[in-house]
């Protein structure tokens, strides 16, 4: 009997404590800065090195490049860039290896859609997904100009 009463005592005390729940859809859920949400892509910075596509553990990135339209400059610019969010696991390895930080994570995580086709995001959508971009990227895979490599 005593054990039961002790337990009830804890329950009653808990009624006086403040609530710990968040009324989610009405109150937005604020994620810390390092949160790995959906990616944001900046086509101007991309040099088509293919590191992100190579390192992706689930092979969800497909990209093509085209030679730079400006005849002075060498190298490629990005033509198409697709991420298949059906299989992207938001693991952050693509941002880790990108040498120019052209692909970064945001803090958005709401990607629910009514059809699977909507989950295949293209370059334009990823470029426009620029709210809540993550500041602290810790790009340890690629060399940073002036900062050195693996840090």
């Amino acid at each position: 009997m005593k054990g039961l009463l002790k337990g009830l005592g804890v329950t009653f005390k808990a009624m006086t404590k403040p609530k710990v729940t968040i009324a989610y859809p009405d109150e937005p859920l604020v994620m810390p800065d390092r949160f790995r949400g959906i990616q944001h892509f900046i086509p101007e910075l991309c040099i088509v090195c293919n590191q992100c596509a190579r390192v992706c553990p689930t092979d969800c990135i497909t990209l093509t490049g085209k030679p730079n339209p400006d005849p002075e400059k060498k190298g490629k610019v990005i033509d198409t860039f697709d991420i298949n969010f059906e299989i992207c696991i938001l693991c952050d390895l693509c941002t880790e290896v990108c040498p120019t930080e052209a692909i970064v994570m945001t803090n958005n995580f709401e990607l629910a859609a009514y059809s699977r086709d909507d989950l295949f995001k293209d370059r334009q959508w990823l470029r426009d997904n620029n709210k809540n971009v993550r500041q602290d990227n810790n790009n340890i895979g690629a060399p940073q100009p002036g900062k050195g490599g693996a840090k």
Binding site: P143, K147, G148, G149, A150
Partner: peptide, 9 residues
């Protein structure tokens, strides 16, 4: 010590 200049380091 910063050893991290280049890949060849």
């Amino acid at each position: 010590v910063e050893h991290r200049e280049a890949d060849q380091e």
